[in-house]
Design a protein around this nucleic acid. Sequence first.
DNA 1: GTGGTCTAGACCACA
DNA 2: GTGGTCTAGACCACC
Lengths: 127, 127, 127, 127
Amino acid sequence: MTDEYSASKPIYLQIADRIIREIVRKELTPGGKLPSVREMAVQSGVNPNTIQRTYSELERMGVVETKRGQGTFVTEKEDILIELNAKIQREVVEDFIQNMKELGLTKKEMISSIEKYHSEREETKKW
Amino acid sequence: MTDEYSASKPIYLQIADRIIREIVRKELTPGGKLPSVREMAVQSGVNPNTIQRTYSELERMGVVETKRGQGTFVTEKEDILIELNAKIQREVVEDFIQNMKELGLTKKEMISSIEKYHSEREETKKW
Amino acid sequence: MTDEYSASKPIYLQIADRIIREIVRKELTPGGKLPSVREMAVQSGVNPNTIQRTYSELERMGVVETKRGQGTFVTEKEDILIELNAKIQREVVEDFIQNMKELGLTKKEMISSIEKYHSEREETKKW
Amino acid sequence: MTDEYSASKPIYLQIADRIIREIVRKELTPGGKLPSVREMAVQSGVNPNTIQRTYSELERMGVVETKRGQGTFVTEKEDILIELNAKIQREVVEDFIQNMKELGLTKKEMISSIEKYHSEREETKKW
DNA sequence: GTGGTCTAGACCACA
DNA sequence: GTGGTCTAGACCACC
């Protein structure tokens, strides 16, 4: 009855999101091996079945490939990775724009706010 | 042991956040009355004590004022509302910048992405 | 079981204290009439018996005198009033000194703290 | 209707005051551990939730710090302790001055009353 | 063990 | 009615 506030997305998707984020941040590199289902299950404190679903979902999206007897690997297909990156980016941008609109800001103001808060430090390499 | 994936803020703060968002979006107007503790508790499917705590927290922050025996009201102090708005905006912008940096984008690219995705439609009024 | 924190002194003594304070502040003047037991009981939201005890106590201390059929009056005996004033004053001073000692202050520092916080405004007349 | 004479602050604040006094008197030393919530609850004859609230309030004020799974400790930040001491002192002095004014005393008389009642014994060390 | 959150149900003061 | 305090008893995460 009190669980409207912890429910959110199913765990297997939360984990999928986390892995996608790691790929996008290049913490997981193309062609790199993911932890085994069992190992990941232990790491995440979750039932192996849950991780199995996560990996299936990622395979369905094309971002990982399973090689029988060897394990699960981040895809090396550039187009998929680029597409993935673009999709995440689109989500981030649209989310940002919507939030800023709710705050009553114009496009101009959004841009100047970025100028204001962006510290120039290290620019990471582009895909 | 299986709960790294609920990890959520306490309910009373989640509700506080929700109310703040409503104030910032002007769904709740300055001087406007919030639902009573008991009513909000029913709406949120939560114990009245939890809402009490939410309202206390909001009062401590200065965004609401309670009048004994009458109810809880959004503050009319402009400076607090403006500051609140600025704080939320800062959070949104910094979150956006961090996300985009993780995607490997430069400031320039962030700005052009906004140009790209921003549909010109209605510009809402500024504070 | 939870009443260590509301107990304090009995009500009849609390009321006596209040009356004494009023006499000392000259809100009640020597020879002046106190409200009747019944009236005071209503004013204080208390049982008349309680006020009766209050007045008895004050009479025992000599600060009021009861005249049969007329009521209860603040004494006009100067020595008692002066003594009363001196006693209250002694209590206030000793309380202050003890508090300040607990804060680790020397006599010198106590005096300078008074110099510091005392605003010169209106000095009321002395007894 | 009979409760003008309990009129007391909430218990959780009374206990907070008591703890503050203990800190100021150095009965609780900086870095020292407070009794656990449950233990303090038993000592004070009060529900653990009430003590929890007390500790929260003290933490909000910055005079204690809680270490998860370890306990609640008096802060070691000197500035906060000094400020706390100053605040308490100010309250004591202002209370004293007001009481003495009600008794009709001038600043000069207040000072000489301290000279009179202050016994020279041990001067405790200053902060 | 520790503090932190939450529920259920009660009583209070204020208006 | 309103918000504010308190109790009783529970479960959680951290150490």
